[in-house]
Design a binder for these strands. Structure first.
Lengths: 219, 219
DNA sequence: GTCGTATATTACCCGTGGGTAAGTAGCGTC
DNA sequence: GACGCTACTTACCCACGGGTAATATACGAC
């Protein structure tokens, strides 16, 4: 799937053009609306209007509204999977990898497709689609658990309940998608760095360093 | 609002009975269905069926489906507010209070009305209702920030970004509502204790104690 | 240029489910 | 034991919006 042009609707400027580009434009627009208004309150007419086309044209690229929703989820997971591969290759001890994962995951949660994974109601997916999504989600969770386990093994991480710790880390990170607003406050990267440091301070087996100066204490 | 009888539908066994009891029965049933099937996929007929009444009877107690949703949110927040009051009274330093808040909040997230706060789409609320809910949510967030600030002040908590830390704590806790299943794994109280200890390990200014034995390492 | 195809449009259908109007029946009251 | 109020039921409405059938048109090919 190719990258979008300047704005999603320009993908529909001309008639013959890359299908993938148009699919992507639909998903970008839909994701934005789903996040703003909610899935149900977003009508397909709304999506089409933004793209300067009409509703039935959407059915050239997606077979239903649910299918568009699934598309958003899949792109969100693609973002994560890309990071996972990099981190796996980079190597390092459990704690190092966990921190890298936190940083990357935080980045995903500040992007629309990443937000879709958390903020859109999974009940709207078809049972088959839901199974797909659940499986991909589970594989991410397993990665958290794997790095925690590795860190306990290599003694970079304190002995902790791997399952529960993975849950709370995921929660802290997923929640970013609910409060992050692009252009306000910290950037995506700054949040990632802060989380990577601070979520692991209590997990690290090495003595705790004093909190980093820099961006602190908005008391 | 009074406590429910054995099962929600028994509130409708007889005709004349406490209105509050029936309202509560409706909300209990609706919350359960909303959480299982999602708000939109739950029809008012479904709710009525479970209570052995018919849909229009619901309109004796609520003026719309949205109003039922709002009711669920309000009861969820009532659970939190009850804990907040207790913690405030109990006193203690910032860290102690923060831990108590974490424990209590975790407990709320394992209950249906607490789960509603996180898992049901707020877009379905009317603008006015949404404003109400947002305000209550904000007041909880302020409590997290207040205890963090207090802890920094009284030196029980490391200097940290209060706003970001409150966010990640809230996220870790809110996420419980997405994975907790009553009767599987740890109990609500055990989760609360674990979270109160482990989420604050990296925040505590006192040296980090080795992780508590007891319930550990499902590696 | 004209033909064929993919793409988009116009016009429409219709299932669904929230909500309501009118009528019925249980229960307390006197 | 008749009355009246409230709770509840039956029967219905209808707006909404996802989805489709039939039709028009831009673009590439030759």
């Amino acid at each position: 799937m190719k990258k979008e042009p300047l704005s999603p609707q320009s993908a529909f400027d001309t008639r013959h053009r890359d299908r993938d580009q148009k699919r992507f434009a639909v998903l970008t627009t839909a994701a934005e609306l789903f996040l703003t208004k909610g899935y149900h309150l977003t009508r397909l007419d709304d999506v089409a209007d933004r793209l300067h086309i009409t509703k039935p044209a959407l059915y050239n690229y997606f077979c239903s509204k649910h299918d568009i929703l699934l598309g958003c989820h899949m792109l969100g997971h693609d973002l994560i999977d890309a990071s996972l591969a990099e981190i796996e290759e980079a190597g390092g001890d459990g704690l190092t990898r966990l921190r890298a994962l936190i940083r990357a995951y935080a980045g995903v949660m500040t992007q629309p497709f990443g937000m879709c994974l958390i903020r859109l109601d999974e009940h709207e997916l078809s049972p088959k689609a839901l199974a797909q999504v659940r499986q991909r989600r589970q594989s991410v969770n397993e990665r958290f658990e794997a790095y925690l386990a590795q860190g306990i093994e290599d003694e970079s991480i304190y002995l902790c309940d791997v399952r529960l710790t993975a849950f709370w880390l995921a929660g802290a990170l997923n929640w970013i998608s609910r409060w992050y607003k692009a252009g306000h406050g910290m950037s995506s990267g700054e949040i990632g760095d802060y989380f990577a440091d601070n979520l692991t301070r209590g997990l690290s087996r090495a003595g705790i360093e004093p909190a980093r100066e820099g961006r602190l204490a908005a008391v």
